[in-house]
Nucleic acid binder design. Structure first.
Lengths: 153, 153
DNA sequence: CTCGATGCAAAGGTTTTGCACCAGG
DNA sequence: CCTGGTGCAAAACCTTTGCATCGAG
């Protein structure tokens, strides 16, 4: 078990939550790839492999909710795609999501946070930087699109 | 019929698209409140009132898709809430969405666009500024949350 | 033993799709 | 006419909820 996963489990224990097979497996998955961009479905699949038995979707969602309530993780909304889960212990960052291929690129918070915070504050807002994704096109897909645009002529 | 709505209809005609009752009504709704933040359901409801007959959801979605493909509108993803439709002719802006009350505040593009563009470019991304929302808390909800935090003690 | 967590089933809300029919140009 | 647009029905998709049962502490 990864150190991160163990930390997570211990944290849950200290919160007075029960350590079940499903939860341990989910923590394992999250801890194994702390900087991955996993959906609930991904996590469920991998967690099932870890323990070799079925875990219900509802269990996954409820566990993730619990973990998020306690501040151990966040989720973001990458456009149309399903929500992406995100460990809080990992250095926080913004997300650039490619609308074409779904690729997600991380941008260190300090590159954008101060700017966003300032502008938001002027409009009476407190920005929640870890809860949204910036949409756009990655270099590859942007290039493909330009090629296509030039092609037909 | 608002001028904006008429422009939209004319634009559709010039694209060789057919002007149906449903489409005219939808254009009417969009043109009537060009800077509103409407969901597909809102648009459907209002469009039905305009013509007094039923319009199917699928028709609304297909019409909006068509309009978006041709560049007459955009949609954004305000977190968990349904997608929000947005006329392109209106001065474009970023959106701050309150996670608690759903309120949406507009931020002129020029306040953020250059900053976002620069950072995104460093990561090989071309930002699509009109296709996402920045999440956070509006002043009112942030205040309510702080009161609640202080209350129980 | 007790309460919290699970699985199962069902529903929720939004958006998409297939198909036969209708109507715009 | 003829093709594109519509309504209807059904499904897809992600997520949430109710309820009886199970198992961690």
């Amino acid at each position: 078990m990864s150190e991160t996963a163990a930390d997570l489990v211990n944290a849950l224990r200290e919160e007075g939550l029960r350590i079940t097979k499903a939860r341990r497996a989910i923590c394992e998955v999250l801890g194994a790839a702390p900087d991955a961009h996993l959906t609930a479905a991904d996590i469920r699949e991998q967690a099932q492999e870890v323990i070799g038995t079925r875990i219900d979707e509802s269990t996954v969602y409820r566990t993730l909710d619990t973990l998020e309530e306690r501040g151990y993780l966040h989720h973001i909304h990458p456009g149309h795609a399903p929500g992406v889960i995100h460990l809080s212990v990992v250095a926080e960052h913004h997300h650039l999501v490619c609308e074409d291929c779904g690729r997600i690129v991380d941008v260190p918070l300090d590159e954008l946070e101060p700017l966003l915070e300032g502008v938001a504050a002027e409009h009476g807002f407190i920005i929640d930087s870890v809860h949204f994704a910036l949409m756009g096109r990655c270099w590859e897909c942007g290039w493909a699109a330009r090629m296509k645009a030039f092609g037909p002529e």
